[in-house]
C-alpha cells in the first residue's frame, strides 16, 4: 500500500527535513517503492525462527571502567560548521518541538 501524504509529512517532520511543494508525491512514491521491496522479506517463512536482533555470536563484551584519552576540544570542533567559545553553534531549535 502506498504511503499517504500525511505519512510522508510525519516522517519528514521526525527527520527534520523541509519539504518543497510537490515533494510529498515524489517521496510517497519513492518511499513506497522501498517499503514494497523490503516487504518481500515477509514472504520468507519464519515460523520456526526465534526473533533475532543480532547475528554475531558474541555476548557480554563489557569494557572495564578505565578512562582513556578522547579528543581535544579543538579536535572535537574541527569539523563543526560553526563553533563559538568551545561550543558547537546550532540554529535555534525554537520551532521544532
Amino acid at each position: 500500500m502506498p504511503l499517504t501524504r500525511d505519512q510522508v509529512r510525519h516522517v519528514a517532520q521526525l527527520a527534520r527535513i523541509a519539504l518543497e511543494p510537490g515533494d510529498e508525491e515524489f517521496y510517497a512514491e519513492q518511499l513506497s517503492g522501498i517499503l514494497e521491496h523490503i516487504d518481500r522479506l515477509q514472504e520468507v517463512p519464519t515460523d520456526d525462527i526465534p526473533p533475532t536482533a543480532q547475528v554475531v555470536e558474541v555476548t557480554n563484551p563489557l569494557r572495564d571502567d578505565v578512562p582513556r584519552p578522547g579528543l581535544t576540544q579543538e579536535e572535537a570542533l574541527a569539523n563543526a560548521p560553526a563553533a563559538v567559545n568551545g561550543f558547537f553553534r546550532v540554529p535555534s531549535i525554537q520551532d521544532e518541538a
Binding site: V84, R89, V90, P91, S92, Q94
Partner: peptide
C-alpha cells in the same frame, strides 16, 4: 542564546 527559549536565535551545544 537570549534569556528565554522562545526568543533564542541560536543554541550552543556542549557534549
Amino acid at each position: 542564546a537570549g534569556d528565554k527559549l522562545h526568543k533564542a536565535r541560536e543554541s550552543f551545544v556542549d557534549l
